[in-house]
Design a protein around this nucleic acid. Structure first.
Length: 923
RNA sequence: AGGCGCGUAGCUCAGUUGGUUAGAGCGCUACCUUGACAUGGUAGAGGUCACCAGUUCGAAUCUGGUCGUGCCUACCA
């Protein structure tokens, strides 16, 4: 074995081996266990969220596989309609053409080409994470079989009247020229203005003053509204105003919607361009005047002067023109929330169009019940509130998109606009009994990507026709995803799956936090603070990292800032830490909070942990290969150290499995880290050295200690494997054949069973080893504090009233001598014979390190005083409790007894220390 | 405006149903290359658990409030 752990050399090897040998496919005949992956964008790239979620899913999948469950991790990608179409359009633009020019069919060919070209990247990246995914079942939302399910779902919902075509305001992206759902709109605060305009009242010299943030919509105003109770304007209701610039009269109306306290208390109403105004318009039967084209330029409904202007140019001109007419009252700076498309960044317009909708209420009701009655459980549970809040106030779902890339809507129109819904044109004719010569045109639009994602769990498992996997693995066990798509995806999956299969899609939803950068900022390309999980695995040079973060940016002006910040955060680039260390970082950060500040320091720490395991394995192999090893763990021959680590392992195992059942990956990883490093590597390995290095003294002990070292290492590897798949496999392959475990014949650790739980505890061994540790630590403390060179072998005396202590000294002398680096250690029968010494106390035992030239009396005095001070503080708090009658009366007996014990121990230790201090003073 | 989180060591975070002298990792200080590992070892320093009040024999933990901070939802024309 290499002297240090080199992850790069073995990760690819093992992943390839596992995949080639089919180990990721469901094995055996245990109870099925299934996770479906949240489908990543087929042309996308891996980000930290994927890394995090994959780490969690793989731990669950490997754990349950080792528990003997028949385990399937179902994988696939989605077509990411808008995102993918945008990328291909940008490429076309760069080549001097566009999609309109080349036409729909040629464009789709280009998208498929792009999918072929870049589609494998993310799945290759996921492999680097070690995810034990059954790649033989990989799906894509645009596959024939998946598309057939989408079509079936649409047609069924339509036939049941749950999909309808509506003409209403939608969120319109004037850059992408498509409707988007309200979830795809992000409203951020931006600096703008509040314009106050005067509208002249007809038949009067007076004006009403309205306030607006969008002057250009004046062209579409249908009314002025005031609050019915507003005394200031009550007299004006029913009058008309002359709409400036438009040669149009509009009424002043009264409506509760108006907030008299805001602005001037008068609101212009533009039903075609504002969601609230649209509702007001409906109540008052106002005309809906659309003044925009699809790309948000002024259309022909507006006065000639403004036609053809872009909305922002029109805004400018309208303000200028009103200024010229003296109708501008004032202009104030104003921060407002501007709705932008999450993909395009364009300001979204409420826009009146025909779109397809899903009538959602009848789907939502059972989906709410499924969570209410506990069929589906969110982890952590509070996310259920978020889910309920949205579901109980749910709006019909606009599912059509004016894109070309996606599932085309299976609907045809005749020349009169009558709708026929069927999989193909000919089936439509058959279904609706239409004449062959009736002209039919298919709807040009496609479905929202989330419509197909909503069918994900059951469509990927073969529903409805190929039901073998569906019947076995559905409902799936756990969905692992981020809270940002609870509405987008989780809720819709629950609704759609219940509707079509009558089953829930999953029993549990584990909601992860969002991975943020070291400042707590959300990672995003535009902020330039993204980390690529692959770079953390392989490492990356600073220059390359800067280059990567500043390449093809949407906002090139930020380039310098990002450049600088990157150089500050990673002055030496990023070292490669390997997949296992990265994964372990994710587990350790997977706490119940919702923000995960990614800390590279922890990744480095876990890389070191890998190295620690690696070297412990080297130690064990060096001391066991070609050496005599006991054939079984006969308890009679086990040393106290052997028994101790066996007991500690069982305890760690119980804790890890309990944490897994609670989805507490942080606790699982912490337990593993502590057990392997502090108990196995620090103590067990060290305690084995006196035995193995002095083999002649007791060859039988050496043989069994070797077996214990091997067997605990082997079991620890299995315990750790779901979290660190690569290093555990590499080492296990070498270690398992040397043990007597029955499963050592398994070809891979990932197919070996998880260690069996054993709740019993070897109290006696634990007490004895605690004693050994206590004595060693006391001596080390004196060495450290007294500045005694570690190279110096020292003499130590032990003394106490307890015969047990004396017996222990005789039994464990070699441990003490080796681990505390002693020249000699003797029992003092009579305290009076004690030499002048530095003193440590373990329970009733005094540990004496003679002064004899080694120790500075003043230093010892200071050390004792510090100990005394510490103990005095502790004792004060404990005796405070015991002196309080109410505590003694009210607290449970066990608690009181515990405090009493503590107080006694502390008092006697304190007395001993004080005595020692006095002895020093007598010198 | 409503809802949900969070506030514990310089930093990133644990702390189960209230009962330790409040923990881990990283960082820091001192010493050490000893036959698995310097990606290491040993020892050590470092916290009025945001603040205030309450419940209790006992609060980091429960309740109410204050402050700070982050996110989500709905919105102010």
């Amino acid at each position: 074995m290499e002297k240090t752990y080199q992850p790069q050399q073995l990760e690819n090897h093992w992943y390839k081996t596992w995949e080639e040998r089919g180990y990721f496919e469901p094995q055996g005949d245990g109870d099925p266990y299934c996770i479906v992956i949240p489908p990543p964008n087929v042309t996308g790239r891996l980000h930290m969220g994927h890394g995090f979620q994959n780490a969690i899913m793989d731990a669950l999948v490997r754990y349950h596989r080792m528990l003997g469950r028949q385990t399937l991790w179902q994988v696939g990608t989605d077509h990411a309609g808008i995102a993918t179409q945008m990328v291909v359009e940008r490429k076309l633009n760069a080549a001097g053409t566009n999609r309109e020019e080349i036409g729909r069919e040629a464009f789709l060919d280009k998208v498929w080409d792009w999918k072929e070209e870049s589609g494998g990247i993310i799945t290759q990246q996921i492999r680097r994470l070690g995810s034990s995914i059954d790649w033989s079942r990989e799906r894509f939302t645009m596959d024939d079989q998946m598309s057939a399910v989408v079509e079936k779902a649409f047609i069924q919902l339509y036939d049941e009247g749950l999909i309808y075509r509506g003409n209403r305001l939608v969120n319109w992206d004037p850059k992408l020229l498509t409707a988007i759902s309200d979830l795809e709109v992000v409203a951020e605060e931006e600096n703008g203005f509040m314009w106050h305009f005067r509208y002249p009242i007809e038949g009067s010299d007076d004006c009403v003053v309205i306030a607006t943030t969008r002057p250009e919509t004046l062209l579409g105003d249908s009314a002025i509204a005031v609050h019915p109770e507003d005394e200031r304007y009550r007299a004006l209701v029913g009058k008309m105003v002359n709409l400036p610039l438009c040669d149009r009269k509009i009424p002043i109306i009264a409506d509760e919607y108006v907030d008299p306290a805001f602005g001037t208390g008068c609101v212009k109403i533009t039903p075609a361009h504002d969601f609230n105004d649209y509702e007001v318009g409906k109540r008052h039967d106002l005309p809906v005047i659309n003044i925009f084209t699809k790309n948000a330029s002024i259309n022909d409904e507006a006065p000639a002067d403004y036609r053809g202007l872009d909305r922002f140019e029109a805004r400018k001109k309208i303000v200028e023109d009103l200024e010229a007419l003296g109708l501008v009252e004032k202009i104030e700076p104003h921060t407002l929330k501007v709705p932008r498309g999450d993909r395009s960044g364009a300001v979204i317009e409420p826009y009146l169009t025909h779109q397809w909708y899903v009538a959602i209420q009848s789907l939502a009701d059972p989906a709410i019940k499924a969570v209410e009655n506990g069929d589906i459980e969110f982890v952590p549970k509070n996310w259920e509130n978020t889910y309920f809040a949205w579901m109980r106030n749910i709006q019909d779902w606009c599912i059509s998109r004016q894109l070309w890339w996606g599932h085309r809507i299976p609907a045809w129109y005749d020349d009169e606009g009558k709708i026929y819904v069927a999989p193909t044109e000919s089936e439509a004719r058959l279904k609706y009994g239409l004449a062959d010569d009736l002209n039919l045109q298919q709807d040009p639009d496609v479905l929202d990507t989330w419509f197909s994602s909503g069918l994900w769990t059951f469509s990927t498992l073969g529903w409805p026709d190929d039901r073998e996997f569906f019947d076995k693995f559905h409902p799936t066990d756990v969905l692992v995803t981020g809270f940002d798509i609870i509405f987008f995806w989780v809720a819709r999956m629950i609704m759609m799956t219940l509707k079509f299969t009558g089953e829930i899609p999953f029993k549990k939803v584990y909601i992860t936090g969002l991975v943020r950068d070291e400042q707590g900022q959300k990672m995003s390309k535009s902020k330039g603070n993204i980390l690529d999980p692959i770079d953390l695995i392989d490492g990356i040079e600073l220059e390359e990292l800067v280059e990567k973060r500043t390449a093809d940016m949407m906002q090139p002006q930020l380039k310098q800032k990002i450049d600088k910040a990157t150089r500050e955060a990673f002055p030496d680039g990023i070292a490669g830490y390997g997949t296992d260390a990265l994964r372990f970082t994710f587990y350790s950060l997977a706490t119940t909070g919702r923000d995960i500040k990614f800390d590279l320091g922890r990744t480095e720490g876990f890389r070191n942990f890998c190295n620690k395991i690696w070297n412990a394995a080297r130690y064990v192999l060096m001391n066991t290969e070609e050496k005599e090893i006991a054939s079984s763990l006969e308890s009679a021959k086990l040393s106290v150290a052997d028994r101790w680590i066996i007991s500690r392992f069982d305890k760690a195992n119980v804790a890890v499995q309990a944490a897994m059942n609670d989805f507490r990956f942080d606790l699982a990883s912490q337990t593993l880290h502590e057990f392997i490093w502090n108990e196995y590597c620090d103590w067990t390995v060290e305690l084995s050295k006196p035995v193995l290095w002095d083999e002649e003294a007791n060859p039988e002990s050496a043989k069994i200690t070797r077996l214990v070292l091997l067997s605990i290492l082997e079991k620890s590897l299995r315990l750790l494997h779901p979290f660190m798949p690569f290093i555990t496999e590499e080492i296990w392959q070498k270690v398992a054949p040397l043990t007597d475990q029955a499963h050592s014949s398994e070809a891979s650790i990932m197919l070996a069973p998880y260690p069996e739980l054993n709740e019993t505890k070897d109290e006696e061994a634990e007490q004895h080893v605690e004693w050994i540790k206590g004595v060693i630590i006391a001596i080390r403390n004196i060495r450290g504090e007294m500045d005694i060179s570690p190279a110096k072998n020292i003499n130590v005396f032990l003394t106490s009233q307890s015969e047990a202590d004396q017996l222990r000294l005789e039994s464990y002398r070699p441990y003490l001598e080796k681990l505390a680096k002693l020249e000699s250690i003797h029992w003092l029968d009579d305290k009076a014979d004690a030499p002048k010494a530095a003193t440590g106390i373990y329970k009733d035992l005094e540990i004496l390190v003679p002064l004899a030239g080694l120790i500075d009396v003043d230093a010892e005095r200071a050390r004792l005083s510090k100990e005394i001070e510490k103990l005095t503080t502790g004792l004060k708090s404990v005796s405070g409790k015991l002196n309080n009658a109410k505590f003694v009366d009210n607290a449970p007996d066990a608690v009181v007894a515990k405090e009493r014990g503590k107080a006694e121990q502390m008092t006697s230790t304190l007395e001993a220390l004080k005595g020692k201090l006095e002895e020093l003073d007598e010198l």
